[in-house]
Design a protein around this nucleic acid. Structure first.
Lengths: 164, 164
DNA sequence: CTAACTCCGACCTCGTTGGTAGGATTCGCT
DNA sequence: AGCGAATCCTACCAACGAGGTCGGAGTTAG
């Protein structure tokens, strides 16, 4: 699998926040129940988003989180970067920010250059591209008009954050 | 990291085979030394390529491996599929071959559909696309005209498979 | 017959993933 | 003032997969 649950849960969390665009802050407890995710784990994940400036928090009673800026201005490459760290196809890919190029550390290991570099660069390009051209707003809209397969609302007592 | 060393080593191995297009079979030992990879581990990796029909083997003395078809006809999506198994961005992605669609298992978990599906589908599309439009031949050519950073030939006693 | 190979399965070690536990701290409310 | 709801923070932990080793058995040219 390419991404871990950090990305999965983190993006889900962002989508939930995106539905309540800029209203009162939403507590993690509510989100955890709505998405059926472990609260304690979510706490650690949302910390990543906060450090990246994608999310704001207010502490104390009736506190919670909300988006730091409109969903349309949150690109998913920022989100995933914050959640997963650098997205690279192989461990030998280091992004050296000096000249902005991504290079493969196998280059300097003696023999002919790493024959796989071209491939991994294309793959990484594909991923980064897909992430960058997707905004949180799109995901929110997409989730909203999702076809409901069955039993749309909570037969197990869970509450959707919002019905539509 | 997106891919494991299986993909890395496996593709490297294919590139090495690609350089000797259809000559006598090359033994793993030679490749292992040329690429500085563990022989025993390579054995298991090449088995994956063989099962996928990308590589042929001849046993016994002076045996070894060679490409089952011309490098230009080997697409990297086949290679990576053989090496890594299905490439999916998340564990919830199952590719059900009945109708050819890729779907997310979170769809049937009650509430509103998985808000992240659109994103992961785009990402997967980007990866698969990059893999499919890259042939082994391209990698062989690319590796051949690699700029040598320094000390091109073996100061540590390792032999390049071919000087080029 | 033996050296050089491919083939195969069991085993092992280490780091990461995905959590949990337990507590501070900060605030609204009464 | 004080309680409860929330964010914050660190430490801990079990399970799993990644990456690799080992030992051997089957095959074949010289």
């Amino acid at each position: 699998m390419i991404f871990t649950t950090k990305a999965e849960y983190g993006v889900r969390l962002l989508v939930e926040l995106g539905r309540q665009e800029r209203s009162a802050p939403v507590s993690l407890k509510v989100i955890a129940e709505a998405e059926a995710l472990p609260l304690a784990y979510l706490e650690r994940i949302v910390a990543l988003l906060k450090r990246a400036g994608l999310v704001e928090s207010t502490r104390g009673a009736h506190g919670g989180y909300r988006l730091a800026r409109p969903a349309a201005e949150i690109r998913m490459d920022d989100a995933v970067l914050a959640l997963e760290g650098v997205v690279a196809p192989m461990s030998c890919f280091v992004d050296d920010r000096v000249d902005g190029r991504v290079l493969c550390s196998h280059l300097d290991d003696g023999h002919h250059g790493c024959g796989t570099r071209l491939l991994w660069m294309r793959v990484q390009g594909g991923v980064v591209d897909a992430l960058r051209r997707t905004t949180l707003q799109e995901l929110v809209d997409f989730a909203a008009r999702e076809p409901q397969i069955a039993a749309p609302v909570a037969e197990d007592g869970r509450l959707p954050l919002r019905v539509a």
